[in-house]
Design a protein around this nucleic acid. Structure first.
Lengths: 205, 205
DNA sequence: TGTTTTACGATGCGTTCGCATTGCAAAACG
DNA sequence: CGTTTTGCAATGCGAACGCATCGTAAAACA
């Protein structure tokens, strides 16, 4: 046999190329030939490490998921409010690493709308995030409904990520929006009731 | 010539089929043949009304954009807070119409990340929304930074739309989150400062 | 050292794609 | 009423696709 090769390492190389293709031109432009070219190897090699295109895409999905997770896990702070802020900012395409990964996440997020297999993985990750963030929120501001606040913050962060990606919101503005949103969530929100309804009309025409 | 036909009507029929294909199986599965089959006509007809696939997709994009706009325009209320709430809820896949359009929007949103032509249109629509919502916010709660609040609400709504689409958040929970978020934004937020920073450490590891 | 096994490059196959071309029935128009 | 124009179906073409197959250089193993 030829030189013993690190199987997982090779797979990561190819998976990384898949992510680059997705980030540069979209999930639908991923083909075995493009990925091979991006990796700088032959198509046969790609096929050697992935039986099907689908398996390759799933691997790439797991790969960026792990990377985002690692990036989030590397965030630390003793102060829960600072910690929370740092985590939210890490979800946005602000750092070079996040800027590289966010378009890939966005592509898989959209694909999850029509492919339940992706959606399931995303839901699991999001559920973990809700629990995590809720703990931090409760530490900063006891009482209220920390899980609800966490879910709202995550929706906000996801939407903001996309807005930054399409150039709707600048990185600086995004950071300011995060700070503002955090100040809203962390300062009060004691009540558990339904919120804002200020009259009883059906509000639709 | 054969029976005079309403050109725009035919184009809308086909564009509608494009949206259905996108919603059911994703933007990348759109092909002239699939669209023709979905419309129940021959491929030649599709080609007769759209010179290129790209033109067809752009038309479909404009089509759902107009529909969402129409849906938002149909919302009315005398009370600004109720009005604002109704608009935000209309952005979520809660009604049957919105449930049909949201997956299409999500697909184009993701495509906009790698195709600037889509991004530009989305940015314009979003800018209008910011101005619109900011006016309502200012009417409910004078002072503060209504444009910032509007931008934050839109990011929140976009993210929440996706979370509902992937089954992460139920429609009922989404409605409650909107109410909660509105109560946060509309009740106070007087300050203009940078927000939450609670210590001076860099917050990253 | 001979054998086997591994890691690939190369090539081919059947399908599907976007798009161009062609043909023709039918109705509007002179 | 014939001519022209329009609306479309049908078909063909080259490219790209995922995937299967085959061939082979090379290293681990006996």
């Amino acid at each position: 046999m030829p030189k013993q090769v690190d199987h997982d390492e090779r797979r990561r190389e190819i998976g990384d190329a898949v992510c680059r293709v997705i980030a540069a031109r979209g999930l639908d432009t991923v083909s075995l030939r493009h990925v091979a070219a991006e990796t700088g190897v032959s198509m046969g090699r790609v096929q050697h490490y992935f039986a099907t295109k689908d398996e390759m895409l799933m691997f790439a999905f797991d790969l960026i998921s792990e990377r985002v997770e690692a990036r989030l896990g590397a965030v630390h702070s003793d102060d829960p409010a600072t910690y929370l802020r740092a985590i939210l900012l890490e979800l946005l395409p602000l750092s070079p690493a996040a800027r590289a990964e966010a378009p890939v996440l966005a592509a898989f997020l959209a694909q999850a709308v029509v492919e339940p297999r992706f959606a399931e993985v995303l839901r699991r990750g999001n559920d973990e995030m809700v629990v995590w963030l809720a703990g931090l929120i409760a530490a900063v501001r006891p009482g209220g409904d920390p899980k609800r606040d966490a879910a709202a913050l995550l929706a906000f962060a996801d939407g903001l990520m996309l807005q930054v990606l399409i150039g709707q919101v600048s990185p600086e503005a995004a950071e300011e929006l995060v700070d503002h949103q955090l100040s809203l969530v962390l300062t009060r929100s004691r009540h558990t009731g339904s919120g804002t309804r200020s009259d009883s009309s059906p509000a639709r025409a």
